[in-house]
Structure formats: C-alpha cells, structure tokens
C-alpha cells in the first residue's frame, strides 16, 4: 500500500522491465504450447489477462479476511473459479480457438504468473494497484505470446493471422507451400523462446 511507486509504473513494469515470460521466466508451458500462430497466442494472452485482472481484484478485496494459513488454497479456488468462467465463455463464443488451445485453458489455474502475482502483489496491495498490476503483467505476457506466435507462424506455416479473415502470406505463396515446418513443432517453440530470451537480455544490458 505504502509503496512510493507511481501508478503508471505499476502498470508498465510488466511490459519489458519485469516481463513475466522473458525476464521472470514464468508461464513457460502455455507460452510454448499455444504460440503456434499469432491468433492462438493472442487468444491465450487475452484469457490469461482476464483471469489475472479479476483474480487480482478479488484477492486484493479479500486480503484482510483470508487467514494466513489457508491463503494458497483460497487463492487457487478464486483463480479456478475465473478460469472455469473463461473456459465456458470461450467454448460458447470462440469454439475453434477453444479447440486449438485445448487443455491449456483449464491449465491457466496452475500458471505460475497468476498465483505469483496473487501471492507477491495482490495479497499486499490495494484494489486499484492490484488491478493495474494484473493488467500490465497480463498485457506483457500477451505481447510476449504474440511476438512468439508471429515468428513461429511466419516461419513454420508461411502465413500470418491464420484463423482470422485477414490471413495472408508475408513471404509469398512459394514459401507457404514449403515452410520451415519444424518451427510449428515443439523444437521450434523451445528454440524461439530461447533466442528471444537471449535477445531481451542483450537489450537490457545495452540500455
């Protein structure tokens, strides 16, 4: 509560400085699995951001009532309720996205970013700060997923924005016919994340 950090810094820290994926290395499972295309990565980012903001708000409101001993199970139940909501909403409104993200939507429950923010931030700070923190962290996570999805989709599938009406082939039809298929397969996911992480580290050292 009493931290002297200004509100906008609370919001923007998740973008680069404390990016959950590239710097804190949290939430690696969903980011490797769902970043096969830009659209999938975006969808996963939105779902995680929604859960993160809502659970941060509720946990921040309840922080004075939850006994310390059962705090982790209480947080998990709050998070799991919002995840169930997101799961059902996505199944109803964006069914094809729900199919391609598969088991990773219910697995948002055990995403370390969300429990980590609940424990490290929302349980100690006011509602507004917690909401901003959740939004910033969620958007940072989403940006990381979108970058990974873009790289893997262009190289591995030869397209961009597949799954939306705006699909096109940035390197032309010839490349689309024989893309670097391994980039959409698991090895490509590990390689992309590893190299991006090294790149972010380099940028951080320069500035």
């Amino acid at each position: 509560m009493a931290s002297g950090v200004s509100l906008d810094r609370e919001f923007t820290k998740g973008f680069v400085r404390e990016n959950p994926l590239f710097i804190l290395v949290l939430g690696t499972c969903p980011s490797l699995a769902t970043s096969t295309t830009l659209f999938n990565g975006f969808g996963m980012g939105i779902a995680a951001t929604f859960v993160l903001v809502c659970s941060n708000i509720v946990i921040s409101l309840l922080r004075k009532f939850i006994p310390d001993g059962v705090r982790i199970p209480a947080f998990i139940v709050v998070i799991a309720s919002f995840v169930t909501m997101v799961d059902l909403l996505m199944e109803g409104f964006v069914f094809s996205l729900h199919q391609s993200l598969g088991v990773f939507i219910p697995l948002i429950v055990v995403n370390c970013i969300i429990l980590g923010r609940a424990e490290a931030f929302a349980s100690k700070n006011g509602v507004l700060r917690s909401a901003l923190d959740g939004l910033g962290m969620g958007l940072g996570f989403m940006a990381a997923l979108v970058v990974m999805g873009t790289i893997r989709e262009i190289l591995g599938n030869g397209t961009l924005m597949a799954g939306t009406p705006y699909e096109f082939a940035p390197f032309g039809e010839g490349f689309k016919a024989s893309p670097v298929l391994v980039m959409t397969l698991p090895p490509g996911a590990f390689l992309t994340l590893g190299l991006l992480m090294a790149g972010v580290k380099r940028l951080g050292e320069r500035s």
Binding site: V25, V182, L185, P186, P187, G188, A189, F190, L191, L193, G194, L195, M197, A198, K201, R202, E205
Partner: peptide
C-alpha cells in the same frame, strides 16, 4: 555470455525435442 543460463537451456531442449521427434 548472452546465451548463458536459461537461453542455452531452452536451445538444448529444442535439440532434445528434435531427437524425440
């Protein structure tokens, strides 16, 4: 130096995943 720690671990897992393919 830039790859030390997590990045090289991920690149190594990429090669391991390639082997498992």
């Amino acid at each position: 130096r830039i790859l030390r720690g997590m990045p090289i671990a991920l690149v190594t897992s990429a090669i391991l995943a390639l082997a498992f393919l």
